[in-house]
Every structure is written in structure tokens, then in C-alpha cells.
Design a protein around this nucleic acid. Structure first.
Lengths: 202, 202
DNA sequence: GTCTATATTGTGATAGAC
DNA sequence: GTCTATCACAATATAGAC
């Protein structure tokens, strides 16, 4: 596959990603995906058989991005505060580049919670890695005693929510000024990191 | 209207709320709402004309709950830390009783961001109330300097996210144990409040 | 592989009897 | 106000020519 010529399959996947992430499964239309890919609607079925199968491909890809890969960061020899800073930065930066992922995943995972079971096996995430690192730091006395699960959920919450609630922030607070909203998001890398570290540092 | 006999209109509204909040506008079916209300499908149209109008009624009601009423709490003569504690408690408690509101609002507001404009006038929320209270406390020296907007977004993030991400938490972390999840949520009232206060207290 | 035409079913909405 | 029957159209999916 040359760089200049995308395969039809990839063209469809890109179009489907755009439509599904913006509208969700129920709101997406096969016709709109075909239009977006500038191909015939039948071709979408030819390549993926059904809306369900096409959606599955998109969902799995998006979900893997939503669940943060803490393992690599946590395994490094940097100190805990730098690890947290890197985690927040990379997570927020990823959402800046994929702003629809939060709402998409949160909605679809609620629409069909059973899907989670199947994703267990595929995502090679070990939830205990972060917890053990935190407990280790507590024992060393670098950070205050805290439940690691609440800590990681706090971190993810503060990264994800401003993207999921973008229309409210942009409309209510920033009078529909996109740049003001983006500025606010950019600030959060530093703000959230400092907010967390102030809370846990000994 | 007696207590024992709900009007048909209210019966429909209750059924519509249940279905819309669980499935969203695109996923909801007029037939399912009628079934849920145990009435004929035509009656739903008779009372509300269209799916859109029925949805609007449900959405406005849910949205007003999602936007926290900070004004009353902030205007009281309690100290800032108690105000924050009350805010977190009431917000989380409200979501315990209405667990579908976060995903519902976040999804629908992204599906149709223009709606926000119309809601501006109806919600009598003054975003500056909280900000002024925070700045006042900073000047008094009770809390550290912090951007009030980032602070309130942090607070709301940590309240909302665990509900929006319930299937992930329940499935990934708590092996589908509903009680373990609810226990975790209950803990958060205290955990989140302490997490915030540790970060800002002087 | 790609197109046109069409089958099939689902869904919001209305007409009209009672 | 409440029901049955039905319309009109939208949407997924497939058949079959090229």
C-alpha cells in the first residue's frame, strides 16, 4: 500500500470513524458514511457486511485510546510527581487531537454495557500497576496516604470531563468562543497537575 | 389531582424520561415509551404531538439538574470548606438518585450544541457567584491562589465522571459487582472533598 | 470491485371510529 | 380521550448487471 493511495477499506473506516464519533451508533447513517467516504452505499456493506460490524471496528479503536496506558509511564524511573505530570499532559493532548472520543465512549458504553466484558481480554491493561506505584510512594513518605483508585479516577475525571462537556463550557462560559475554550483546555495541563500534586505531596 | 391517580400526561412524561435517559433521543422509540407508560402509542402523539416536543420537555428538566445550583450554597455564611463539602455531597447524592443524567446530558448536548443558546435564558445561574466567593477567600488568605474556573470544573469533573463511566468502573474494576461500585461512589463524597481541600487550604 | 435497483422492515405521525 | 388501522418515508441490507 503506497502512501498516496488509501485503500477503499481504509477510506471507509476513516469516514465511519468521523460519523460514528460525532453522532453515535443510533444517530449515524450508512448513507452519511458513504457520502463522507465519497463512495457508493453498497460498497460499505460489501466491505463490512453490516452497520454493527463496521461500528465494532471503530469502537474498539476508540476505546483503546480512552483507556490510558499508565503502565509504561509508571514503570519508568522518574519520580511520582513527574509521572503524574506526564500522564496528565499526554492524556489531555490526546483528547485535543481526538475531541469526540470522551462523549462517544461514555455514551456507547452506557448504551451497551455488556461490550465491556469482551474488551476485558483485548486491552492489556493491568489496573494494579498504578495502585502499587502509589502505595510504594506512600510507604516512602513522598505522598500522603490516599486510596489509589480514588486518585486515578480523580486524575482521569479532570482530564476527560472538560472535553465531554465542551458545548456547555464553550456556550455557557466562553460565549461560543472556540479559542477561549481551547486556551482553557491548554491551561489545564499545568493547572490539573499542580492541583493534584498540591493535594498529595508530603 | 389526587395523589393516587397520576394524570396521563404525567404518566407519559415519567415513561419518556426513563426511556430517553437510558437510550438517548436517537435510540429511543415512541413505541417503547408507550409500552413503558402502558398506554397506546397514539396517545403519546395526542399529548405531545411529536417526539421532538416530548424530548424537549425531558431534556430541559434533566439539564436543570445537571447544572449545579451553587448560588444558594455560596451565599450562606458557612466557611468556604464547608460550602465545598456541601456542594460535593448534594451533587453526588443527586446523581445517585438520577444515575443516567450525566451521560444523557453530555451526549445530547454534543448531538445538538445549539440547544445551549436557548437554555441560557431559562437557567437562572450566575457563573460569577462562585468565582467571586473564591477570590474573596484568596484575598482573605484562607485558600491558596487558584483560578476559580479551573477549581469549579475540577469539582464538577470529579462528581460527574464516575457516573458517566459507570459501566467501565463496574466492569473493569469491580467485576460487575454493583454494590462494590455503589460503595466506591459513596466513599467519594468524603474522598473528593478532602482531596480538594488539601489542595487549596492555606 | 463498483454500480443501480429493490426488497424488507422499522418508525414517526395521522385519520377516523367509538 | 382512547383505540385500530394505516400512511409515508427512512434505513439497513441484498440481488444482480457490468
Amino acid at each position: 500500500m503506497t502512501e498516496e493511495e488509501k485503500t477503499t477499506e481504509k477510506t471507509i473506516l476513516d469516514a465511519a470513524k468521523k460519523v460514528f464519533l460525532a453522532k453515535g451508533y443510533d444517530g449515524a447513517r450508512m448513507q452519511e458514511i458513504a457520502d463522507e467516504a465519497k463512495i457508493n452505499k453498497s460498497l460499505v456493506h460489501y466491505y463490512f457486511r453490516s452497520k454493527d460490524k463496521l461500528f465494532d471496528a471503530i469502537f474498539k479503536d476508540a476505546f483503546s485510546q480512552f483507556i490510558p496506558k499508565v503502565a509504561e509511564t509508571m514503570a519508568s524511573d522518574k519520580d511520582i510527581f513527574e509521572k503524574i505530570s506526564i500522564f496528565i499532559d499526554t492524556y489531555i493532548e490526546m483528547f485535543i487531537n481526538n475531541p469526540h472520543i470522551p462523549t462517544f465512549i461514555l455514551h456507547e458504553i452506557n448504551r451497551n454495557p455488556d461490550r465491556i466484558v469482551g474488551l476485558f481480554k483485548e486491552t492489556k491493561i493491568d489496573p494494579s500497576v498504578f495502585g502499587l506505584t502509589v502505595i510504594n510512594e506512600i510507604n516512602k513518605g513522598t505522598i500522603k496516604p490516599i486510596n489509589p483508585l480514588h486518585l486515578i479516577i480523580n486524575m482521569i475525571s479532570m482530564c476527560v470531563f472538560p472535553f465531554a462537556a465542551k458545548p456547555i463550557l464553550k456556550g455557557f462560559i466562553f460565549q461560543n468562543n472556540e479559542n477561549a475554550y481551547l486556551q482553557f483546555i491548554a491551561e489545564r495541563k499545568k493547572e490539573v497537575t499542580e492541583f493534584i500534586i498540591r493535594s498529595i505531596k508530603n
